[in-house]
Amino acid sequence: MKVRITKSAGKNLCKLLLCLLFIYVLAGCDRQDKPSSNNPQPVAPARIYEGTIIALGDSLTAGLGVAEEEAYPAVLEEKLQQSGYNWQVINGGISGETSSGALTRINWIIAQKPDIVILETGANDGMRGIPTWVIKDNISQAAKLLKEAGVEVILAGMQMLQNLGPDYTKEFAAVYPAVAQEQKILLIPFFLEQVAGTPSLNLPDFIHPTPEGHRIVAQTVYPYVVKAIQARRLDRSAKNKKNR
C-alpha cells in the first residue's frame, strides 16, 4: 500500500520547458543563469568623464554567472581610472546575443554617443553553427556604421570551440582579422586569450569566465583601449584645432 515519494514542491514541466528555453536561448548557452546585479543608475552620472566607452557584446561582456562589478567592463573602468584615464565604461552586454542582434541594435548604441565601442560578438553565432560569412557581414556592417558615426571601434577577436571541427573553427577565427583589416579598426587578436580552456578560470559550464577570468580579459583588452583613447584624444585635438 505504501508508495514511496519524495516531497514535491514541483514546478511543472511546462514552465520548466519554457524557462529552459528562454534561459538557453536568450541568456546564453547555459542554464547557470546566476543572478547578477545590474542596478544601472544611468541617469545623471555623478561625475564628469573624459569620454565614454561602450562594451558591446554578449554574455562574455555582460558577465553571465558573475556579478556585474566583476565583469570585465567594470574591471576595465577601474583599471583605466587607476591609470589616470577618467573614462567611463558602460556594460552593453546582452546574454545570448548573436552578431545579427548586435548589428540590429547598433543605432541604439550610436544614439548613446560613445567615443569608443569594444565590439565583442559572434560567439553565440559560432555555437549555433551560423555560417561564418553571416558573422563576418554582421560585424563588418556594425563596425562600418560605428565608424561612420565617428566612433572608435575595437574589435574583439574570437575563436570557436574546437569541437565544431577544423574547417569551421578556422573560418571562424579568420573572420575577425579580415574585418579589422577591411574596416581599418583595432583588433584584439583573441578576447579570451589565456582564459579559454583553462578550467580554473571558467565556470563549470566551460564557457563563461570566472571573476579571475574577467580580470585577465580586462588585462587583454586594456592596451587596445588605451590606444583607442589616445587616438580619440588626437582626433579631438585635431577637431578642436579645426574649429579654432
Binding site: 508508495v3 515519494i5 516531497k7 514535491s8 514541483g10 511543472n12 514541466l13
Partner: peptide, 9 residues
Amino acid sequence: KRFFENFLF
C-alpha cells in the same frame, strides 16, 4: 522529475 513527483504524490 517534478512531473513524476506530482503524480507519485
